[in-house]
Amino acid sequence: MDLDAYVAAHSHTWARLERLVEQRRRSGAEADELVDRYQQVATHLSVVRTSAPDGELVAYLSSLLGRARIAMLAARVPRWRGVGRFFTEQFPAALYRLRWWWLGCLAGNVAVIAVMMIWLAGHPEVEQSLLSPADVDQLVNSDFESYYSENAASAFATRVWINNTWVSALCIALGILGAPVLYLLFNNIANLAIVGSIMVRHDRGELFWGLIIPHGLLELTCVFVAGGVGLRLFWSWIEPGDLTRAGSLARAGRTAVTVAMGLGVVLFLSGLVEAFVTPSPLPTWARIGIGVLAEVAFLTYVFTLGRAAAARGATGDIGAELLEDRVATQA
């Protein structure tokens, strides 16, 4: 192919797309033309890559198409509508489609916590090897309860949110390796099991559960969701199905980012509960009730809104209009 002749024949189309992209406002006809020109230039890029792969021209057309994709998305989806669609379609659909991964992670971790607490309760020598009698006495009689109220609620909520978001993000980000996710989850539940067994052995079980359950149900569910999604990311390149390993990993990775963004909001709500409800003077049954309601609300969100969104075809992946063009349409 004569590259110079091809550029001369189609440069006017590229220039027109440039002008449409740079316009702040477009009429209905111009918005339709933007889509048409985008498809034409995508075809031109495909032809150039196949027949005359000039690096500079490929970079220019790729950049132009990227800016055009953003312009088209902005023209079709107002900002707040996009946020609404994320929380009514993408995030719940991703949670629902990945439900067996994180429900399995949740069930497995709860079982391990239960076994560890039962075993630790029957082996008090382990407790003695971890903490001195003075440390145990301080934990049981003051430290555990004061942890939730020794700082200002707003500052405590922020700290808790950042910490839990960081743990969840690590579970997802390190999911590609598999084993680090299991290590993070084990450390998380081991601390809970050790402190819980100590509190129960010293007849402070009611205080322990009364302070853990209000925020812990939703908080731990989020961590287990992150763990399950991280393990699914690992499995995506182990067993890619009908995709290439890179394609399977890319798709799972994009969905994982959707889940991570949504979990940040859910963990913020969990942090508010931990900072304002857990240490509050409300009776224990009321605080636990709030925690149970928060957990039920989350599960209802997943299994009603998420199931409906998945049935409509939502996957949690980004829209096709934002993916790289891989094939030509029509010259």
Rank of each mutant, 00 (worst) to 15 (best):
W101P: 03
A309H: 04
A121F: 14
A157S: 02
R251Q: 14
R204Q: 13
G55H: 09
R67A: 12
L249R: 08
L130W: 08
R26K: 11
A260F: 06
P92A: 10
C171D: 05
W101C: 03
A157D: 04
A71L: 02
I113G: 08
G210T: 02
A15V: 13
W237N: 03
I113H: 09
A169I: 04
L64V: 04
Q23R: 06
V302Q: 07
Y38G: 00
V83I: 13
D317R: 03
A94S: 11
A42S: 14
F268P: 04
R85W: 08
W101Y: 11
G178D: 02
V181K: 01
L233P: 00
S270W: 05
R159Q: 15
D32K: 02
I176S: 07
W101G: 00
P124W: 05
L267R: 07
N163G: 10
S149E: 03
P92H: 09
E22R: 15
R159G: 15
V229H: 04
I213E: 01
L95M: 09
L263K: 03
L185M: 14
R81A: 13
T165Q: 12
R307I: 06
L57H: 09
R24E: 10
G205C: 04
Q128P: 08
D4N: 15
P92F: 07
N141M: 09
E22A: 15
A71R: 02
S11L: 13
I176N: 06
A260I: 04
L192F: 11
V21T: 02
L130H: 03
L20Y: 00
Y6T: 08
L130S: 05
L65P: 00
V296C: 13
S62P: 07
A42I: 02
A314H: 09
S142V: 11
R26I: 00
I318S: 10
P133W: 05
V273F: 08
P214V: 01
A74I: 11
A114T: 12
A328P: 08
Q138H: 15
F208Q: 04
Y148N: 02
G228E: 02
L20G: 00
N164T: 06
L217D: 01
F234T: 02
R16K: 12
E219M: 07
F186C: 01
L305Y: 10
A8L: 11
S129I: 03
R204G: 08
G247C: 07
C105I: 05
T258S: 03
Q128D: 15
S51D: 15
V277P: 09
I194Q: 10
E127A: 14
G253Y: 04
P180R: 10
R16E: 07
L73N: 12
L211K: 02
F276T: 01
C105S: 14
L305N: 12
E127C: 12
P240C: 00
T329W: 13
G178A: 03
L3V: 07
G247A: 10
Y96L: 05
A121D: 15
V126W: 10
A320H: 12
S51C: 14
F186K: 03
F91V: 05
M72Q: 06
W101N: 01
H123D: 08
D242Y: 08
D32N: 08
A314D: 07
G247M: 06
T304W: 13
A256H: 02
A75P: 00
L177N: 07
I290H: 06
G108Q: 01
S132E: 03
R97G: 09
L61Q: 09
L130Q: 06
S132R: 06
A179S: 10
A157C: 04
V327W: 06
A297H: 09
P283L: 07
L57P: 05
G210R: 01
